[in-house]
Write a protein that binds this DNA or RNA. Structure first.
Lengths: 185, 185, 185, 185
DNA sequence: CATGAATGAGAATTCATTCAT
DNA sequence: GATGAATGAATTCTCATTCAT
């Protein structure tokens, strides 16, 4: 018995993400993924029962990853302003450092068949816990979770998606400033 | 006969939008669109040179439509608070009244091959002109266009995409309130 | 608009029958059929929605054909003995002259998914009407339809399937003789 | 350990027969058989060199089984009428009690690549020896072996295949009566 | 002996597009 | 302009079989 090759599965995921960044979900076939990953198309079906399930599973896995990335940047003793800055800047740098995953998740979350199977909510969970703590301590204003999520993450992703690359830095600083004014007490 | 043709082309667009809402971009073929529109696949090629061009053209056309929709709701004599409320509420109601177009544009704008051919910027143009006017009159704070767009449109779309249907109304009111605080002088 | 090519559809059926005779149902793919018929695999799907439906439709069509063949050989003024001889000999010669169709029908009628969709009964209908007439006229003994069908058709097909090619003629004569004794009054 | 192995091999055969009854020869893959048998696909290749050989071997084995089943029912001191009744009734009850094997053999015997490798003749052998004995004793008429086989087995299988389930019993009684008339002196 | 992983070849089917009318 | 027929290329996925343990 040969044992399942963890590395192989990772190569499949990487290939998928890379290709979807380049060609979009609808331009990415199982055969292409296999070629890019250096495995046979049939091998993919050892790891996933079908393309749809593969997409859902990888989407589920990666949809949390920007939040995991953020969690590592956030320290427990940050003040409110730094927290907001860290989140916004972190969101943006994630989209640059992990362009593939970022684009992959953005595409999947807009695709009806996929988005209904993975909820953004769950991923937000940990971050919201921290926000709640800051709210309890009177550092951040208390708005509903949906709106906190909406203003903290959507605008910076908007910038990332639309590649306003001129004045990137200034733009980001301004947004941070805006959100600090909006959310800090 | 002009009427007939335009009607046919409209049916093709409607079919495309309807199917992409239901099945996603990658689940929507020319044949399906033709069937849904009640025309022959070949007929589609009378109006568009190929599928890609069709997608781009319709995307281009519809990507401006939420902004056109907004422009009709905005009056020249609104005060700043109402302007913001109208924009946010308009964005949201557009996503509900034109679910297909909203989802279609969201999907296309995340699809690499399409998004690079249609810029969000152009569509924002008219709205930004109005915002600039309000800024000049000292009603709205002056932030860069990108950030104005980011905070005015991205969060409300975030709510629309994630279907936070419980407390929809409250949520929206809160967001409006937040943005008024952020943008009004 | 190109019109559907009746000849093309016939070539598809012929190819299917020919290949199933040679390679069996499970050795016959759509691609092989297409190649044999000189059309593209995709063309087959212009005529049939899928392979299963194609099989069922052609099976249905051909399952009646040995009986149609027989009907042409049977005259209204035959005496009972000749009727039986004609049926038995006709069955046998059909299996020889239309080896493909014979084998195709035999295979399909044993295949669970196909046989449940096409009933032998219907095909027997016309022949049984004639038998009934002979029974009414007191020429043939009255047995149930199922048993009439069973003894008239099954044994001769048994011979055809098992290719008892030595003494083919004698064997057939003997069987005719047996059935005349059994069925004639 | 011998027991274990034979058990495994039997499970493979059982799985094959069960699946072929349900899905037909062409719907039954090695992987499915393995899953149904609770073994690895690779294990099947421990017992058989390939699928074709497995089919042939099991077909050969099982093609004799209705005749073995019959042999157990036939006593040496039966009179001719009872012999015929026992054969016909036995054939029918075998098809009901061992539906899978019956359907499996029927399918295989129509499949060109398999039927040419297994001859019905051999299987009939023992039964024919008994028939010959009855013929020698002047109890049964002397017809050729092919025709004896044809009338004794084909009609009752015809009934079994076509599931004339209404009046099953009467139908069978009638057929027995017919064949007694035909074959008894 | 027994296995799950792995695969090249091929399955059925759909695709975007063009052809002939 | 409009169409259904036709198709080469590509799709997703399964196949029988072998490999490595």
């Amino acid at each position: 018995m040969r044992t399942k090759d963890q590395d192989k599965q990772q190569r499949i995921k990487d290939a998928m993400v890379k290709l979807i960044l380049r060609d979009g979900i609808d331009g990415t076939s199982v055969a292409k993924i296999a070629r890019e990953a250096g495995v046979s198309p049939a091998t993919i079906y050892v790891y996933y029962p079908n393309k749809e399930a593969m997409m859902v599973e990888v989407f589920r896995e990666y949809s949390a990853s920007p939040y995991r990335y953020l969690m590592q940047k956030i320290g427990p003793d940050m003040d409110g302003g730094l927290l907001i800055e860290t989140i916004v800047r972190g969101c943006y740098s994630f989209s640059r450092e992990h362009e593939g995953i970022f684009s992959f998740v953005e595409q999947c979350s807009r695709c009806p068949s996929l988005s209904e199977k993975v909820s953004e909510e769950e991923c937000l969970c940990d971050i919201l816990d921290i926000i709640h703590e800051y709210q309890r301590r009177g550092v951040l204003r208390t708005y509903s979770d949906w709106n906190i999520g909406a203003v903290l993450f959507a605008p910076v992703r908007f910038l990332a998606v639309n590649h306003c690359e001129t004045n990137e830095e200034e733009c980001l600083n301004e947004l941070i400033h805006m959100l600090q004014g909006l959310l800090l007490k």
